[in-house]
Amino acid sequence: MSTVDQLQQQFGSAIIRTESFRDNVRVIVTPEAVHEVLKHLKESLGFNMLAELTAVDYLNYPDAVDRFGVIYGLTNLDSGERIFVKTYLNEPDLTLPTVCDLWQGANWLEREVYDMFGITFAGHPDLRRILMPEEFVSFPLRKDYPLRGKHERHNFPVITRAES
């Protein structure tokens, strides 16, 4: 019984659909079920490594229905299998449960997703910006953020030679 079949048996309607493309197995789940699915994958099905956690903004993407996708890439270190768990989010409710309780390594990954997309993770121990300065207010990897910014890069003090 494959991993996908086991997941479908276990979670039923929480699994929206599954896709596979050349060994690349994807499971699309509802945001409410994502923590349970990941926990089951880790503790019962052996996917013990969180290889990646990232997000995509599907604004203006052809045929996309939802705005944001959050993707969890898991690896089974024993068998080498990989699986991608994906969930979709829409404004205004951009909150997911944290998976820091399952993988400590998710801490910084979730901070990066928060920093770049503004998706918050409920229960995260320290949800701050990780790459951008703390006073930054926008989320720069959103597609509606201008490439040259919203004048953030011009708000620093200027030092003249006589002052320094």
């Binding site: 599907y58 604004l59 203006n60 229905v65 705005r67 404004e91 205004p92 509606d144 490439l147």
Partner: peptide, 11 residues
Amino acid sequence: TAPGSYESSTR
């Protein structure tokens, strides 16, 4: 920027 409004950004 990609066209689209920040306010009406939910699909």
